[in-house]
Write a protein that binds this DNA or RNA. Structure first.
Lengths: 153, 153
DNA sequence: GATGAAAATCAGAATGT
DNA sequence: ACATTCTGATTTTCATC
């Protein structure tokens, strides 16, 4: 892994807040030159540190007000079944994140849906014994106090 | 709330994947004109549907490889204590998300840190009885199979 | 009133020395 | 570090539906 210096970290902090910040402004704020910042950004991209620039939308206004934390236990944890499950989750648009965890459950998901009805349909479609799911626990978010994509570096 | 038509949804889908997609390309892909797409984007921004454009960073490469799911129970759930806790979480850079939930715990957090040592320090600093925290459950992610910011509309 | 096409202008990125 | 070139956003206008 690369070491990120003060300039790299400054650039990443700025771009994580506003991906369209002009190079001139970035250079000023990290006390460097436009050319240097340009080279650094290119390198950060090439190294995979900077993944991409995306627009964030308001989940409620975009019609997906419901966030659900889902814990999933699979029948047997052999590699094949885990891989299959992960692959399936990647293909489901309602699934925003999927993490493998240790403990009682095998996976933790974050799912966003339009309504309870849609969530019900989602679970029936995805969490079947056919997909080796033996236990599911759903926890509904009542309120989002914070949602941040920025890693402060 | 506004109704999003085919063009709005198309625009949002495109910008959620690449915020720097040229208007010309957006117009092509949603089968509309540059002028219309521009007007729509401006309106989506004004209405708060489009929140902002950000750069996404690889968490591991940026030195924050550890993701922890934290469940927190507070001493008494009166409004003031909840508000205080939310405010505190908003100010902590390690806390990526904070959701109020129903059930055994009061809040679910997603926390990213550089190491176990840092997580230990974080919990000791933040989850004290002084902050009315009476119960904390930490669950460490072993692997991230999916991390998506896009709402497919 | 919303749309699409075109043109002029401006800002910023990319390039070359 | 500077100047040039190029790309795309912005703004305006106009005709149309």
């Amino acid at each position: 892994m690369r070491e990120l210096d003060r300039i790299d970290r400054g650039i990443l902090n700025i771009l994580q807040e506003d991906a369209s910040t002009p190079l001139r402004e970035i250079a000023e704020r990290v006390h460097s030159s436009v050319a240097t910042c340009q080279r650094r950004i290119e390198k950060l991209r090439a190294d995979g540190v900077l993944v991409k620039a995306v627009a964030l939308v308001d989940r409620a206004l975009a019609g997906r007000p419901l966030t659900v934390f889902v814990s999933v236990e699979l029948e047997k944890q052999n590699t094949d079944i885990l891989k299959q499950f992960e692959h399936r989750m990647r293909s489901e648009p309602e699934v925003m994140s999927c993490y493998e965890v240790a403990g009682e459950f095998d996976f933790h998901l974050i799912v966003t849906v339009e309504s309870m009805e849609e969530y019900s349909a989602f679970t029936r479609r995805v969490f079947t014994s056919h997909h080796n799911v033996i236990n599911v626990k759903s926890l509904f978010a009542m309120n989002c106090s914070k949602f941040e994509t920025k890693l402060t570096l």
